[in-house]
Amino acid sequence: MAIVTPGKRPGERVANSKVLGKRFTRAKKVGHASLMLTSLVDMFSIIVIFLLMNFSANGEILYMTKDIKLPSAQHGGQLERAPVISVSADSVTFDGKQIATTEDLQKGDVLNVPELEDVLREERRRYEQIHVNDPEHPFKGLVNVQADRKIPFKVIKRVMFSCNQSGFGNISFAALAKTAGEGKPLAAN
């Protein structure tokens, strides 16, 4: 049996009738729909204001990766643009390039990481070369360190020592900014 649309189904003769057939013809829909422009403009304006309030001219300074879960901090300042050393559970990277494995850094009692020192010295040399005629921007030795919250201090210590040896004495620890009333209570982290 053929599938038909529900509703009244007149016989073929009635449907074709000039007098009676009109009762069974369906009304055609109007071809155009009017947009509610006022509410659309309202919505756009609200979105623009919200996005402008969240806008940050600094952009992304850190490379956020899945395997680095940052701790949170309430009293941190704004991060400055500087070389980034990332320490995840697997690797230590400098500006996205892998320098060493975290496992290697956990072994032994020596403090320095020669590979990291080399790239840091190269970075310093590059900065000083670029700003040789720019006394307003002297080398400040700024470096950002972002590490997973579970990384032991032994690894951080070696990274810090290498930074220090290469002239990067101002280290900024990266953390997720948290407002005072947000998240877990201070009593125990």
Binding site: S56, M64, G76, G77, Q78, G169, N170, I171, L176, A177
Partner: peptide, 12 residues
């Protein structure tokens, strides 16, 4: 930028 990152500047 959806994640707000803070920096704790320390001296080594």
């Amino acid at each position: 930028v959806w994640t707000q990152i803070a920096g704790l500047q320390v001296a080594s």
